[in-house]
């Protein structure tokens, strides 16, 4: 059902954008997007997380959304006229720092051309404008469960967080390197808390993180979030 809807949307694009060939499969791209969703939201109601939301990305001037704190590199690229089309997205997703050297997107790159094609198709499917996108589409991406607002409202103790963070640094690197294990520095506190509670509730699957989160109280998670938000 979803596949058919997507095919329809993509079909419209092919008609509109005749001359350009998009071979990607947006449904497959939604799966590829799982690697992006720690930092980027997409679909109805999407807001900025660690990275900017990716609705209506096609045609967006790089680094141009008002209420997101972009790296100097992306702002400069936008000022120099770069906007997001399939070609630029393909290069950026393959190797972010090769296209924008001073980007703060800590993603090693996606080597598979097929995955990139599918991902770009998915991003295009979310660029039609919210009114044209059925609300059911983004639900193909697993979402973190909602966290009780009272838990989100806890003010973390960053000094305690610094001690607790030492446990994280056994695996996660303080300089943001992310080979095999993602970077956790510089995350907005809300996103950090939501993700840790998703591990605690086992909504997120990694057993190492479930084990770590299981031993963290709500105050501990708030403290960690307060500490890591300030790390670069």
């Amino acid at each position: 059902m979803q596949g058919r809807v997507l095919t329809k949307i993509l079909g419209c694009f092919w008609l509109v954008c005749s001359g350009l060939s998009y071979s990607g499969n947006a449904e497959q791209g939604a799966k590829v997007f799982q690697a992006c969703q720690s930092c980027h939201a997409i679909g109805a109601g999407a807001d900025h997380l660690v990275g900017p939301h990716l609705n209506n990305l096609f045609g967006r001037v790089a680094g141009s959304l008002d209420n997101f704190n972009y790296s100097a590199g992306l702002r400069a690229a936008g000022a120099n006229g770069m906007s997001w089309d399939a070609e630029h997205l393909d290069a950026y997703i393959e190797n972010p720092i090769a296209l924008v050297r001073e980007t703060s997107m800590r993603f090693a790159g996606l080597a598979s051309a097929e995955d990139r094609n599918n991902l770009i198709a998915f991003l295009r499917a979310n660029s039609v404008g919210p009114s044209d996108i059925p609300e059911s589409l983004p639900t193909s991406i697993p979402r973190d469960p909602d966290v009780d607002p009272q838990i989100l409202a806890i003010t973390g103790d960053p000094e305690y967080g610094e001690y607790l963070a030492s446990e994280c640094m056994t695996c996660h690197q303080s300089d943001g390197a992310d080979r095999g294990i993602p970077s956790i520095v510089g995350w907005p506190t809300k996103q950090f808390v939501i993700v840790m509670h998703a591990y605690k509730s086992t909504a997120r699957p990694n057993p190492v993180m479930q084990m770590i989160a299981a031993n963290l109280a709500d105050e501990d998670i708030a403290a960690l979030a307060a500490y890591f938000e300030k790390q670069q």
């Binding site: 695996c171 095999g180 190492v208 084990m211």
Partner: peptide, 30 residues
């Protein structure tokens, strides 16, 4: 409480676990 990998896991998950171990090695040695 703890966990252990399961017999017969997918090749994809096993590869991820190996990649994770490399991340851990880099993390702990840093």
């Amino acid at each position: 409480g703890g966990f252990i990998s399961k017999n017969g896991e997918s090749a994809e998950l096993r590869k991820q676990t190996y990649e994770e171990s490399i991340g851990w090695y880099n993390g702990i040695t840093s």
